[in-house]
């Protein structure tokens, strides 16, 4: 497996943190930044709103990626002033 990658999360925006993956783990680097997550089948357009976003890291400091076909994973940083970051293990 590859080394972990730190992905910055700009304020009030969707960020693609993993591309074309079926398995992996995302760890949040902080607890004060509210994050939501969604996914898209690889090749599809990125999300533009919050319509299918759900709260991320509700159950702890990590999210497991587990998919039967490649997906792109997106995180949304709800904080208007504070950037965030996550560690992505693929």
């Amino acid at each position: 497996m590859a080394n972990p990658v730190i992905v910055a999360l700009p304020v009030s925006a969707w960020t693609k943190v993993a591309t074309s993956v079926t398995a992996g783990t995302i760890y949040t680097k902080q607890t004060t930044v509210k994050l939501s997550q969604t996914r898209r089948m690889t090749g599809n357009a990125a999300p533009t709103d919050q319509s299918d976003a759900v709260r991320a890291f509700v159950d702890g400091g990590s999210e497991t990626i587990s998919a039967s076909a490649p997906i792109d994973v997106y995180l949304y940083n709800h904080n208007a002033t504070k950037a965030g970051s996550v560690r992505v293990d693929l």
Binding site: A23, Q37, R39, T64, I65, S66, A67, S68, A69
Partner: peptide
């Protein structure tokens, strides 16, 4: 979990 849970099921 992100995805349909189908990873590593082959």
């Amino acid at each position: 979990m992100i995805g349909d849970g189908g990873g590593n099921k082959a």
